[in-house]
Amino acid sequence: MYVNTAHWTTSRLLSTAARLNEHHQNQQLLDLNVTHASAITLKALSDSGPISQASLAALMQVQSQTMGKILEKLELKGLVSRSRNTSDARSIRTRVTARGQTLLDSIEQMRRTAAESAMLQDEILRSQLIAIITRLTPSTA
């Protein structure tokens, strides 16, 4: 089916590409029993180290309640662990478990292979998308 995208706005092109990419990644992640949202949450946790749910939600630009649902599912699968912060008992810190890191390594390898085969390693496109995200992200100052 041919879709004439010549007159689409940049916003529509970006959101459509993002949706299609997420759907494609969810299809690939089915065998690993994880969703795109879970995979990017694991990656963010791996990159940030132990972090609170609220901080992780802010980092990922989602609502804290949304992040809570994702973390709950990941915890049930043994991919993350949550524990009270030793310096502030009101705060709960989340970290990736060894099992979660193993899964994340598999996901990263799968993504590298898929990106190479789909020619999605375009550094110019990546830098332009990063610039758009940076420009549109509200400042927290």
Rank of each mutant, 00 (worst) to 15 (best):
R99N: 12
M67A: 03
L56R: 05
I51N: 08
A44D: 03
L13R: 07
A58G: 05
I40W: 08
G68H: 01
D122H: 06
D105N: 01
V80G: 06
H23T: 15
Q27T: 08
M1W: 03
D47E: 04
S48Q: 01
D47N: 06
S117I: 05
G100L: 01
S15Q: 12
T140G: 09
S117Y: 02
S91P: 06
K73E: 14
I40F: 10
N85K: 08
M67N: 04
E116P: 00
Q53D: 08
I124C: 11
E72M: 05
A57D: 04
N26S: 08
T41S: 07
L13S: 12
A39M: 06
N33F: 07
T102Y: 00
R12K: 13
L74D: 06
D122R: 01
M67V: 03
A131R: 13
D31Y: 06
I132M: 14
A54N: 09
W8K: 06
L45T: 02
R12E: 15
Q65A: 11
R19T: 15
L45M: 01
V3R: 05
S11V: 13
D105I: 04
T102I: 00
Q61A: 09
I132W: 05
L104T: 00
A18H: 14
L13M: 14
S46D: 07
S55G: 07
A118Q: 08
L14K: 11
S83P: 07
T134R: 14
L29P: 05
A115F: 00
E75W: 10
S52H: 02
T16P: 05
H23D: 15
S46I: 01
H36V: 10
D88K: 08
V80S: 06
G49I: 00
T9R: 11
R90N: 09
P138F: 03
A58D: 13
H7G: 12
R95D: 12
S55K: 15
D47W: 00
R95W: 03
A118E: 10
S127E: 12
I70D: 00
L104H: 00
R12M: 14
T41K: 04
R19C: 14
S55L: 14
G49W: 05
R99F: 01
L45V: 03
S117G: 00
I132N: 14
T94H: 08
